[in-house]
């Protein structure tokens, strides 16, 4: 169980951690309870890679396109995002408050021969320790924390000048309730029931405001929709349900920090 350290407030929700710990063994089973996330993985990986390559002047066609970029995956789960990014050369830190998840992630990376620094810790603890990253990823995690504003601020602290933060989450709309909860958890059974709670969903506007307060400006955003006919996820302008937001810290960090205070 996560501990809040050094007096900083924790944004980790204990009930959420318990829920995901139960699923730890199934992270890498493409036919198990994480099947939906595996299906979702290529579209978000491609988006992260392309945004990173554009920002840092890399060639996305190379197999080492992310070489040397220090990246943090907050709420890494079993590592299904961290491990591919590490394969592309990223110096990867995967953080998750669940011991079971971290153990599952470590075991898989060892077997695959991929180096990922998995830590059972929280965004707050990493921020307190003064960790800094070229890219901070909060993918499918803000809808699981207790205090979005605080969580986002602590993540944002860790973004180096010139760096990026990418957030993926679910919008708080009726459509999201119908598709992401009723559809995905009850009708299609893509996700275990109780994976998401509608009132914890976050609107793009709320997220933008929280990120702006933390000194990060939106540089790109996209919706992600499920194409029923092609049976795959794809980028879209429709941000009503799943969406991703990219925010950047300007190169001149001092100015932006000053401006925020």
């Amino acid at each position: 169980m996560p501990q809040s350290r050094g007096g900083s407030r924790s944004t980790v929700d204990a009930a959420e951690v318990a829920q995901f710990s139960r699923l730890a063994a199934e992270w890498w089973d493409p036919n198990g309870s994480m099947a939906a996330l595996h299906k979702f993985n290529p579209v978000r990986l491609a988006y992260i890679r392309d945004q990173a390559c554009a920002r840092f002047g890399r060639d996305p066609k190379r197999l080492d396109s992310l070489s040397g970029l220090r990246m943090l995956d907050i709420g890494c789960g079993g590592g299904i995002l961290s491990e591919p990014l590490a394969r592309l050369g990223a110096v990867m830190v995967g953080a998750d408050p669940s011991e079971d998840n971290v153990a599952a992630a470590r075991q898989h990376a060892d077997r695959a021969g991929v180096a990922v620094d998995y830590r059972c810790t929280t965004a707050e603890a990493l921020a307190d320790a003064g960790e800094r990253f070229d890219i901070v990823l909060a993918m499918e995690v803000v809808e699981h924390v207790t205090n979005v504003g605080l969580f986002v601020a602590r993540c944002a602290e860790m973004v180096k000048p010139g760096g990026l933060m990418i957030v993926a989450t679910i919008n708080r709309t009726l459509k999201a309730f119908a598709l992401a909860i009723v559809g995905a958890e009850y009708v299609l059974r893509w996700l275990p029931r109780g994976t998401h709670q509608w009132d914890k969903f976050v609107t793009p506007n709320e997220l933008e405001i929280a990120l702006a307060k933390a000194g990060l400006a939106v540089s790109a955003q996209t919706g992600v929709i499920y194409n029923l006919i092609a049976d795959r996820w794809q980028l879209s302008t429709d941000m009503d349900v799943n969406y991703m937001i990219v925010v950047a810290r300007s190169d001149d960090a001092a100015t932006s920090t000053e401006a925020d205070h």
């Binding site: 299906k39 993985n41 290529p42 890679r49 197999l63 590490a86 592309l88 795959r232």
Partner: peptide, 18 residues
């Protein structure tokens, strides 16, 4: 090629299903 450029497993179930 698409899978490997995303760091994904070219022999994984998702790639083969595609």
């Amino acid at each position: 090629v698409d899978a490997m450029r995303l760091g994904l497993d070219p022999g994984g179930a998702d790639a083969l299903a595609r």
